[in-house]
Design a protein around this nucleic acid. Structure first.
Lengths: 153, 153
DNA sequence: TTTGAAATGGATTCGGC
DNA sequence: GCCGAATCCATTTCAAA
C-alpha cells in the first residue's frame, strides 16, 4: 500500500515541504542528480498523491487572526448521524482548521484560528446552533512555540 | 501594524493558499485584473511576509506516519529556563509539528505525527530524557476529519 | 503613481536517444 | 538516466492613463 520511497525521493520531499518555490534545477544540483530525474520523481510523487498539494502559508497574525484555540468536545450521543452532523458543521466553519475524533475520554478535538476571545464565542455559537453538544472545553494558546507542516522523513 | 489588504489581495491570498501551483495568469484572469497587477501584489505580500512561504503538503499516511497524537503537558516548574529547555527539546524532535503554551489548567499542548503507539513512546522518551515533565496526558486521533492550512479571509 | 501590453529570460515539460 | 526542443510562466521594461 505504501509507495516505495528511496533516499532520493525522501530528499526531494524534504526539499519541497520545506520550500516549494525553489526550482527543480536547484534541487537536482543539491542532490547530485539530473534535473530530469527530479522532474520524474516529483511527477510520480504527485500522481501517487504522496505530495497532496502545494500551498502558500499565510501569517495568521498579519490577517487579523492572532488567536489559536483548542476545543475539546465530549458527547453523550454516539450515533453515526450525530457524528456526521458534527463533521458537516465543522466543515462549514472556515475558522476551524483541524478536527479529529479521539480515543479515550474526550471524543473530539478541534483547532480554530480566530481574531479574539469574542470571536471564539461567535464561532462557538455557530457550531452549537448546528449540532447539539454535551460538553465543550476551550483552551486558548498564549504563545505559538512551534508550527510546521514538515513531516519527518 | 497589520498590512492593509484590499479585496484583490484577499482573493489572491485565498487562491494561493488553496493551490500555489496555479499560474499568476490564471489568477489574473479569474479576478479580472492584469497579470502584472497580480505579480506585484504577490511580491508585496511576500515582502510583507503575509505569505510566509510556499510548501508542498505531504500525505502523512503515505510516508508511514498515520497516527496523530495530542499531548497535554502540565508543569510544576514555571521558570523561564525550564520553559526554554522544553521549547528547545520540542524543536529538536521533528515528529512534534505543533506546540503551544496555553492559558488555564493545562500548560502546553503539542501535536505529533507518528507511525504507531509504540512510536509515540519512542518520541515521548526522547522528550522526557531532555526535560523534566510533571504530568503528561496523550490522546490519539482515531480519525482525521478536517485538516487545512487555509485561513479564513 | 498605478496599470496593462508586450518582450525577455528562465524553468518546466516531455519527447527521443 | 541524459539531451534538447517546445512550451509555459515569472519577471522586467516600457508606454499610456
Amino acid at each position: 500500500m505504501l509507495p516505495k520511497l528511496d533516499p532520493t525521493d525522501r530528499a526531494i520531499l524534504a526539499a519541497l515541504q520545506s520550500d516549494a518555490s525553489q526550482s527543480l534545477d536547484s534541487i537536482a544540483e543539491r542532490l547530485n542528480v539530473s534535473l530530469n530525474t527530479v522532474w520524474r520523481r516529483v511527477r510520480r510523487l504527485e500522481t501517487e498523491a504522496v505530495i497532496e498539494k502545494r500551498v502558500a502559508l499565510i501569517d495568521n497574525e498579519k490577517i487579523g487572526l492572532p488567536l489559536t484555540a483548542f476545543v475539546q468536545i465530549r458527547t453523550d450521543n454516539h450515533s453515526e448521524e450525530w457524528a456526521s452532523d458534527l463533521t458537516a458543521a465543522v466543515n462549514a466553519i472556515p475558522e476551524i482548521v483541524e478536527f479529529y475524533r479521539l480515543a479515550g475520554d474526550v471524543d473530539y478535538i478541534l483547532k480554530m484560528m480566530i481574531a479574539s476571545v469574542a470571536d471564539y464565542d461567535r464561532v462557538y455559537q455557530q457550531l452549537i446552533s448546528r449540532v447539539q453538544i454535551y460538553n465543550v472545553s476551550a483552551s486558548f494558546a498564549m504563545e505559538k512555540l512551534k508550527f510546521t507542516t514538515e513531516l519527518p522523513l
